[in-house]
Simulated scan of single mutants.
Amino acid sequence: MIEATGFAVRAGLPFNRMVTIHWEAGRVEDDLKATARFLKLAGDWVRCQGGVLAFLWVRESGPGKGRHVHILMHLPPDLARGFNRRQRRWLGACGAVWRAGVILSRPVGRSLCHAMTGGPDYEANLTDALGYLLKGTDAQARDALGIRRCEAGGSVVGKRCGVSANIGPGMRAG
């Protein structure tokens, strides 16, 4: 995930948005399938608008927090308004019941454009956001990576995390 993040920045696709979807609050049983569907709908829409979506995600669950996913993504800033209008519809297409608290979507840094200019402020915000997603790693990895936050990610069935193909291992190798 760290390598994918660095690759995304170097490829001109810096993560500029963090989306958290509380699938359990939306009454979705298969959060892995719903996450894949949401990202497919979002990616298709961004592509139809002439943009590129890059992302990584981590699933979590547990008592008091329920099944949810954190997604760091690159969203072309000029598509943000249309993206925001469609998120609720995409959640419905994933089987989620709309209600307050199902989705939280916010920029990484001051704004979506902030990532495009980079700099120490953006890098600090990106490091914090990535550290939040990696908070469930073991103590040795957290120490080696300088991740300060420590919190169990809970038990999940199936894949815990993933990245989009355009920043995945195949792209990074070639």
Rank of each mutant, 00 (worst) to 15 (best):
S61P: 09
G62F: 06
G62Y: 01
P63F: 11
G64C: 12
K65L: 15
K65Q: 14
I71W: 02
M73K: 03
M73C: 05
H74G: 01
H74K: 01
H74Q: 01
L75R: 02
P77M: 04
P77D: 05
D78C: 09
D78K: 13
L79N: 08
A80P: 04
A80Q: 10
R81S: 04
R81Q: 12
F83R: 09
F83K: 05
R85A: 06
R86C: 01
Q87E: 01
Q87C: 09
R88S: 07
R88F: 10
R88T: 10
R89M: 12
R89Y: 13
L91M: 12
L91T: 03
A93R: 15
C94A: 03
C94H: 00
G95D: 07
A96E: 01
V97N: 04
W98V: 06
W98M: 05
W98Q: 04
A100P: 13
G101K: 00
V102Q: 04
I103K: 10
I103L: 15
L104C: 15
S105W: 02
R106Y: 09
V108Q: 08
G109F: 00
R110S: 04
S111Y: 04
S111Q: 01
L112K: 01
L112F: 06
L112R: 12
L112A: 11
H114W: 02
H114M: 07
H114A: 13
A115E: 01
A115V: 00
M116C: 09
T117Y: 05
G118A: 04
G118E: 01
G118V: 01
G118I: 03
P120N: 14
P120Q: 15
P120I: 11
D121G: 03
Y122F: 13
Y122C: 07
E123A: 12
E123S: 12
A124H: 05
A124M: 06
N125G: 09
L126C: 08
T127H: 11
D128K: 14
D128Y: 06
D128A: 15
A129E: 08
A129D: 12
L130Y: 07
L130P: 06
L130G: 05
G131H: 06
Y132G: 10
L133C: 15
K135H: 12
K135M: 12
G136A: 13
T137S: 12
T137C: 13
T137N: 07
D138A: 10
A139M: 12
A139L: 15
A141S: 13
A141P: 08
D143P: 09
A144E: 13
A144Y: 04
L145F: 03
L145P: 09
L145S: 06
G146Y: 02
I147Y: 05
I147C: 10
I147S: 13
R149P: 03
C150G: 07
C150P: 09
C150M: 15
C150R: 15
E151V: 09
E151I: 08
E151M: 13
A152I: 08
A152E: 14
G153I: 02
G154I: 03
S155P: 14
S155G: 10
V156K: 09
V156S: 09
V157D: 14
G158C: 06
G158I: 03
K159N: 12
K159H: 15
K159F: 08
R160M: 04
C161K: 11
G162Q: 00
N166Q: 00
N166C: 00
N166A: 00
N166Y: 00
